[in-house]
Design a binder for these strands. Structure first.
Lengths: 363, 363
DNA sequence: CTGAAAGCGCTAACAC
DNA sequence: GTGTTAGCGCTTTCAG
């Protein structure tokens, strides 16, 4: 009857290419994917035609037929926040480069987490690989992911049997504390995580142990009252600093387990007109972009590199798994580039102007 | 021969549900999607079976068959940076809520941009909708997107014929400047965008015009030398501030078009030991999470809400387009919730402690 | 080295 | 109301 309603214009299909090149669709498929058993003359012709026609395989069709999505998903507790968005940025760059789509998903609540990791979220149909940030994956969850064929890498947390990109948090705590001790501090406050962490995030515990190890190594006693939760947030850090200041005998320096908490602490100090580092030294962790702005001494971690490395690991494992499937050489071991990880997870003390000798012992 | 290699475990298919429920796959499809012409008893049975089997439609199959991806893509110049990641966070929340997948893509370079918008990136096969942040879309690009059936909404920039979520940038410039003038400043510096912007980003121009309008309205003259590019970055802001300070007769206040530039400016001032606001008042735009930390006076925009609103507009338009296709009632007009947009794009002056009367005129 | 054909799991006419 | 039947565009045996 009437002209068919202007349908969404679609691009060239594999069949168009096949016809133009005078071969079958199967050959086009092989040629374009670089499979063997294609005469190089044929391959060339196909490739020429393909880009004359500006042919791009339809992702949905490819996924359906091949069972691979060429997509990696990054799951973060929240997308705002410097740390997380920086990790995502690092991952995005690598994925795009490798031709993978990148899906992001926020898993702020325990419910979100369960939905993603346990229930049949049909996650395996939307993604080949998963990068989970700052969230410990349980044995069960890991098993479920493995059964579903999903490749996982964690950043800042761990998952049984899967690779993880993380710094040596014990070392971080030690490094920061040693810096303070070296300056002459004896009473050192610590701004840490949450009291009750529903997501079982164990970074704070490790940094705390590192801190304590450094204290003991220097022959100093660790006072539990000097460690107080700061929730890894600016406000939390500020409140925590206030709490320490209210102590009968406050510390002369604080180790904030993240720069954001350190910023909060600095704010509290400024509001009370206390001098930094004169009255109080402050050291953070991250080297947040803002650390430079307020001259915060910190333990730098290469956050974007963490995301990039994790993405790279995931993609390599996906590709490896795909290859195995063909060659029937099932190896559970993923070739991880240990040097790259090592590089990504190195930390470095960056001394700026929020740390110095304590006033009294300076005498 | 041997046991078939443990294939990736796949979930229940529509057929499993159909068999279990004793109906055809077509009926299952209808029942589950809430289409009419399904006996409610049937629908109920199907739904029961479906979640007993924990059935989830395969996205790839759905996409291939229906031509819809249930995915929206957010394109940002870069993923790091507070502004962009906050927009993405806002959009993510809405998409997840609506059951849409969210793809993110960085379009830092002109080449990336071209690839996404013009070349056949087969974008229409991976996404139903697009949220483009801070990037003006040309007439041609918009036409191309329209032809490909992609729904677009921009944030902070515009695209001919597509909705846009943005603040009144002229108003922003005026508001900031009026605040400064009200405090008694006559010479006001401006930290703006880039000299040559390859992405044709016109926010800075609009804010500049607003600034100039306010100046003239107050009977003040605008001196071109007092406006200098700051690249919307911390470092750029710092350098720009240094440039203004080097002037024969520096301003007594600066309007930084973004908080990040303001932070850079504050840093420069601190390094020179100039008092804020005594020697120099500084006002920014955004209400970046750190504005609070350094007590920066700023013009607040609700950035996360921008992302959320844009995502909502896109999703509504996608759903509307899908409905039309069925009912043959093609309306090019998308029902945009103007109140929501208005709410999202309101700006607000937040006076903190980096602005005050100029020292001299304070006499 | 290449082609034919059978799906992948779903949606959308079109019959009944 | 419900079932049947084509596809959607690709990959992957299996023959040749």
């Amino acid at each position: 009857m009437s002209t068919p309603a202007t349908r969404r214009r679609r691009g060239a299909t594999i069949e168009d290419v096949a016809v133009q090149a005078g071969v079958s669709v199967a050959t086009v498929s092989r040629a374009l994917r670089g499979l063997p058993n294609v005469a190089s003359s044929t391959r060339e012709r196909v490739m020429t035609v393909a880009d004359e026609l500006n042919y791009q395989p339809d992702p949905a069709a490819t996924r359906l037929a091949a069972g691979r999505t060429r997509t990696v998903t990054v799951a973060v507790p929240t997308l705002n926040g410097w740390y997380f968005s920086t990790v995502v940025a690092g991952a995005e760059a690598v994925c795009t480069e490798a031709g993978y789509d990148i899906l992001v998903i926020g898993i702020g609540s325990v419910a979100d987490r369960a939905r993603l990791l346990r229930d049949d979220s049909s996650l395996e149909r939307r993604t080949d690989g998963l990068v989970v940030v700052d969230l410990n994956v349980t044995e069960d969850e890991a098993a479920s992911l493995r059964a579903r064929g999903i490749i996982l890498t964690t950043v800042g947390s761990t998952a049984p049997g899967f690779p993880s990109v993380k710094v040596d948090d014990h070392g971080v705590g030690r490094l920061a504390t040693e810096h303070l001790i070296g300056l002459g501090h004896h009473r050192i406050g610590v701004l840490g995580g949450l009291k009750h962490d529903p997501m079982s995030f164990d970074v704070p515990a490790a940094r705390q142990r590192g801190h304590e190890a450094a204290m003991r190594a220097a022959g100093l006693t660790v006072e539990p009252a000097l460690t107080t939760p700061g929730n890894f947030s600016i406000d939390g850090g500020q409140e925590a600093m206030a709490r320490l200041l209210a102590l009968h005998e406050p510390p002369t320096a604080v180790f904030a387990m993240s720069d954001e908490m350190a910023f909060g602490a600095l704010r509290e100090l400024r509001e009370r007109e206390l001098a930094v580092p004169g009255d109080m030294s402050v050291i953070g962790v991250d080297d947040h972009e803002f650390a430079r702005v307020v001259d915060l001494t910190t333990v730098r971690q290469r956050v974007a590199a963490h995301g990039a490395t994790a993405a790279r690991l995931v993609i390599e494992a996906i590709d490896a798994a795909a290859t195995e499937e063909h060659q029937g050489r099932p190896s559970l071991v993923v070739a991880t580039d240990h040097d790259a990880i090592r590089r990504a997870t190195e930390v470095e003390l960056v001394v700026r102007r929020t740390t110095g000798p304590p006033r009294r012992s300076g005498t």
